[in-house]
Design a binder for these strands. Sequence first.
RNA 1: GCGGGAGUAGCUCAGUCGGUAGAGCGUCAGCUUCCCAAGCUGAAUGUCGAGAGUUCGAGCCUCUUCUCCCGCUCCA
Length: 510
Amino acid sequence: MPAQSMDELVSLCKRRGFIFPGSDIYGGLQGTYDYGPLGVELKNNLKAAWWRSMIYERDDIEGLDASILTHKMVLRHSGHEATFTDPMVDNRTNKKRYRLDHLLKDQKPEILSSISAAFGFEGEGVDALSSAMTKNPEKAEVALNAGKALDPDDGKPGNWTAPRPFNMMFKTTVGPVADEESYAYLRPETAQGIFTNFKNVVDSTSRRLPFGIAQIGKSFRNEITPRNFIFRVREFEQMELEFFVTPGTDDAWHSTWVETRLQWWRDQGLESNNLEPYHQTKEDLSHYSKATVDILYRFPHGLEELEGIANRTDFDLGSHTRGNDSLGIQANVEPNTDSTEKLTIPHPETQKPIVPFVIEPSAGVDRGVLAVLTEAYTKETLENGSERIVLKLRPHLAPIKVAVIPLAKNKLEITDVARKLKKDLQAIGFGRVLYEDTGNIGKAYRRHDEVGTPLCITVDFDTIGQGNKDGSEPSDPNLLGTVTVRNRDTMAQERIAMKDLPAYLLERLR
RNA sequence: GCGGGAGUAGCUCAGUCGGUAGAGCGUCAGCUUCCCAAGCUGAAUGUCGAGAGUUCGAGCCUCUUCUCCCGCUCCA
């Protein structure tokens, strides 16, 4: 049974060195977490598994690592400057806070028109009214109160503040002079770096449709309320694929990718009944998307998004394309005279330049780590009544692959063999091997259960051809040069010759 | 940002009326044991989240602030 509460996971992560609060010794910085010695291994393993499945095991995807600092024009034309700046208003009476456009949409028609009249608005539509009000906050405050806008919570007229922008993107100054214009953004998603490099990748790899560009990297969002451990944080890591397809084939590719991604998460050890695809409704869809399927996972705090697979149509490449009004782009894109490029590729049949559609499977690395930890966390009651905590991680994700344990830590003949074995196994290169000599053998096993080490190898007296501590009992000559290998999940042990270990381990740690 | 709860050793937590800082587990060293958290001896680790105030004296009372949890709000 997976972890039931976030608290027990947080505690294990801190205790064993997976994840710590960011800036801990100064009281912590909200929405930041640091990965410790075991956490970084786990996270790297998860990313490596994704990269392998995208880049190495397929023939139609290229890799990329774009910079985090991003030109403001990129995020202007991507639509983020507009949509990531939500004007908020507060009701002073009951202390509730709303997005201005949401609040307006909740009003009855007659109230909406009296607000509109009080503001002196002459255009059409709630969104236009909202953006007009955002540009003139003082007048907007007067209009909201004069028009008696109702609070959706209690249905009474509120005492409204002026709308104030809340920017979800982190800005930073670039260069020595901090003035109005010398700023850049920390990217709010890795995707834009892929779109801006579309032409570079196509030109340097001779790719033709369909093909994808994959990237893993940090992104930053100034979340209002970071919450739930590493689930919602301000600095996080994404694994994103932008898969470019011929318009018309996009729906089929979208379904294909949903299936592919679900299977990948199952391969990381997540149980099917804890994974749930969710088809976003029209109201949920973001500004760029034609259809989005979320892969939800049953986290300790609830069923929430692990990955989103969006059909972004030709919106992104279209938006970043110079002279995009002449290319028959299907998405509703703003004219672009800032970009220097046409982000097009020949149509596979007509060879005419087109802006392709893009399917985007976008997964959160940190959320993935949290899901994998949640799923793996297991509390078992043993036959003797004692309890053990086991992280039943898939071997390819385990931070430590093998622990080599000398049965007696003060017996040189044994520790020498164990140390040499550790070194030899490490050299094979399947991941981290640890020499473990703290406490007694049972303690060592339990410690490695708790961090998910799949196999523990014990060097004992038989290994060195000695029946017991002082050699007073005869040793079985067949056991000379063999060790015991103990399985994390079953606790069963096997006797294996040291020379056979490399093959044995490679087969089991894949 | 609002409302509620919490913050004391690495973890889980106790701390009475305001009067010298505690337990269990864990960690480290040594001994012992030698295959599933056994035992013995010893040790380290606390600005009691931070700052200010009241007081002869504050872990405890007051204020400010930070962080975490729950519920709102938000969530490309």
